[in-house]
Each structure stands twice: as structure tokens, then as C-alpha cells.
Design a binder for these strands. Structure first.
Lengths: 210, 210
DNA sequence: AGCTTGCTTTGACTAAGATCAATAATATAT
DNA sequence: ATATATTATTGATCTTAGTCAAAGCAAGCT
């Protein structure tokens, strides 16, 4: 939309904070951002991580007056900032757009539901495996790759392991050990690079019952 | 809306199942329903519980073609069943309605986010306390009560403790023990009745660190 | 009443992950 | 290049909630 303005954020910079007036929303041009919530005990729950092409906080400008979570850039990033008021106007005049918006929110909710499933009792190694498989899928999508192939693949963690751990609802130490457990499944982790021998086998492992 | 038809469900009856074609949604006239998801390991995650006046599965009829979760009546209940197609038509012709719908979904998402926060690491006693405080709040709302007062209060669990446990992401045994821990905070549980001496103190406990 | 059935509570035990503490590796700065 | 800070790994221990098993209660039934 023509009214948006691009804005630069540096690593660690706050984009908005829980409770702020929700009068804008965002699309990521490049970089990564996290949506999170600080809990009373000092911990942080990472609700979602976003990257280039994805939008977030669209939901907040409707209904609520304030953001229900905080957001922060986890890398140097460029975001498009949209005015909520102007967007609302457009929505009122365009039923088609409203429907698309509803569909996108519905997808977002499905995502949240999936996330809830993950955070629950499932063992840490499996949670990590799911996460890695997700990253593989992204890469394959981008490369327009055949969905059926099963090359060894090299992926890079989009942000440091502390954040990966938070995203998966575990401690950094536990993440380390989860990587350890995945070694026997052909997952090698070196720095921010992860080498996966058989994405398919890993995907199978995610579904395993104990 | 005039096109809806009321339908009777008995306790334990399936309303719809994960993967079913999402061509309708529901409003509860009376009784209780739960929205849940069966996980690969046989456990069940309860995403939400609904009662009279609340609607659910509205999100599903947009975007996705199938329900992302299952629903079941937890008491004998009467639901209004709406046709998704007809509702979509109405939406297209009515921007106002679309906005309301967006707002309601946005609220629902906020709820899910809160739920995620709860399911996480927080100790079981605190999760239960939050739940009870929520029930108190409902009652006070209905009674148009002063928000600041702090009477001892008697509440009734809306469904059996097995389901409460599931709703809170814990085992029935653990729920019992959680109730035990809350005794020293003036919470007495007898059957489906719960007597809370000081809702305020209980609310404070929810936020406590450790 | 006495019996059955299903929910709830209690107890003993186990296991997964958190925490604490120390070391190693990486990145940043001087 | 060396020093310093940050992040990652490893080990030992502890806590919490899950599991298994048994007993206590309550409601409904014959």
C-alpha cells in the first residue's frame, strides 16, 4: 500500500511494547523480528518469529486498542510501517480485502494452535526436529524444489541459539542436549550452520510416539 | 441470523472433527462445548471451552477448507448451527460486519496467546489459580459487581475436574495436588463447588515468581 | 439397602527438563 | 594479535509433574 513508510531497525531494537497503542502494523522487507511476551517471572515467551515478506500485528489494530505482546528486531532489519487508521478505512471500502484479511488471520490462528501443540508435552528433541524441518521446508519452497526429494541439506539458524531455545520453549542448555540427541539422526550443528543428512527421516522422527 | 438452525447435543457428543469440511460454525444457546486437538501420542490439548452466548469455529470457514481442531459437547447442550456459505455472502456485502468479525477474531487470538502463556512452564498451582480467578471475574461481571471488592466467593466448576485438568494442560492427579497447594491460600474445593476466601490474594499469587 | 460405575484423591516411584556451575568456543573490541 | 565479552556446551544435581496403582466417594441402578 502506497501510504507505508520504510524504517530501519538495529539488532535488539524494540519495535513496539506490550500495552502500546496499537495504531500501526508491519511488513518485513528484510531481517528478522520476534513477537514475544515478558512474563511476570522474568521469562520471555516467544510467540512467533517473522522474516522478509511476512506481516505482523495486523490483528492488533482491530478491536483492541493496545498491543497484546511486544516485538523486537533480532537482526538489523528494514520494516514497512503501515498506519492502522488508513488501513481500516480501506477495509471498510473493500469487502474483498476484508475477506483476505480474515483468511490470513484464520491462517495465523491455525499457526498458533500448532505452536500450542508443540509447546506442550512433546520432548525437546522432537520440538527441535520440527523446527528444523520447518526451516528446510522454507528453503525448499524458495528453491522451487521438488517436494519429494530428500537431499542432505545445509541450513543456517536465522538467529542465535538462545532465541531458538526461547522460541521452542526450552532452556539453552536443553537445546544443546536436544542437538546432541539429533546427532544419531544425521544432524550436525556447527555454529549457526546445521547440516541435515535426511530431512525425511527427521520429519518422521517428529511424529514418533516416544 | 435468520438462517441458523438449532440443534441438540448430548454430553460427549462430537460436534465436528479435525479435518472435517469446515462449512458451518456455531453459537451456543446453552451448555458447554470444548475445542480440542488429539495429538499423535494420544493426548488431548484443550484449546478452549465455550458456553452460552459464545460462538466458535467462525475462523475455520474462512481460508481453510477443513477444521483445524475437533469439538465436542461436554454437557447436554443446544447449539445454533450457521451455514458458512451464507455467512460468507453476508460478509461480502457488509463491511461493518466484516470489521466486527475481524475484531472478534483478534480477541480470540489474544485469548490463544494468553492460553499459550499459561500452558508453558508456569507451575500447576498458579495455572489453576489463574483459572479460578477467571471464573470469579465472570461471576462478578454478571453480577455487575464492584471490581474492587474482595468478598469470599463460591463458584462452581463448569465441568468435571478431568476436563478442567485437560484445559489447564495437566493430569487429573496433578490438579488434585494443585488444589491441595491452594488450600493454604484459602481455597476449599468440595465436589464441583470451590470456595475462595480472598479472590484478590489468589490473583496476587498467580503473578508470583516461583 | 447393596452393588456397580465413574470420578477424585492419595501415595510411591520415575523421568524429563531446569538450575547451578564450570569450561569451551565464538565474536567483538582494543 | 591479544584481551574481553558473549554465547555455547558439558556435567552434576534438583524439582516438578507424569505414571502406576490403590483406595475413597458419589451417583445411579436393581
Amino acid at each position: 500500500m502506497e501510504t507505508a513508510i520504510p524504517k530501519q531497525y538495529t539488532r535488539g531494537q524494540l519495535i513496539f511494547q506490550y500495552g502500546d497503542k496499537a495504531d500501526r502494523f508491519f511488513v518485513i522487507l528484510n531481517g528478522w523480528a520476534k513477537l514475544y511476551r515478558d512474563m511476570s517471572d522474568g521469562h520471555q515467551v516467544v510467540l512467533h518469529t517473522f522474516t522478509a515478506g511476512e506481516s505482523f500485528a495486523e490483528a492488533a489494530i482491530l478491536g483492541q486498542e493496545t498491543f497484546p505482546a511486544s516485538a523486537e528486531a533480532v537482526e538489523d532489519s528494514t520494516l514497512l510501517v503501515f498506519s492502522g487508521a488508513k488501513f481500516k478505512e480501506k477495509l471498510m471500502g473493500n469487502a474483498q480485502l476484508s475477506m483476505q484479511m480474515l483468511a490470513s488471520m484464520s491462517a495465523h490462528m491455525r499457526h498458533l494452535v500448532n505452536q500450542m501443540e508443540q509447546l506442550n508435552g512433546r520432548p525437546t528433541a522432537q520440538r527441535l526436529a520440527s523446527f528444523l524441518v520447518g526451516l528446510c521446508a522454507n528453503i525448499n519452497d524458495n528453491a522451487n524444489d521438488n517436494a519429494n526429494d530428500n537431499h542432505p541439506i545445509n541450513i543456517y539458524l536465522p538467529y542465535d541459539k538462545t532465541l531458538v531455545a526461547a522460541r521452542l520453549g526450552m532452556q539453552p542448555e536443553t537445546l544443546s542436549r536436544a542437538f546432541g540427541k539429533l546427532k544419531k539422526l544425521g544432524v550436525k550443528s556447527k555454529g549457526s550452520g546445521v547440516m541435515i543428512n535426511s530431512p525425511l527421516e527427521l520429519a518422521k522422527f517428529c511424529e514418533e510416539i516416544e
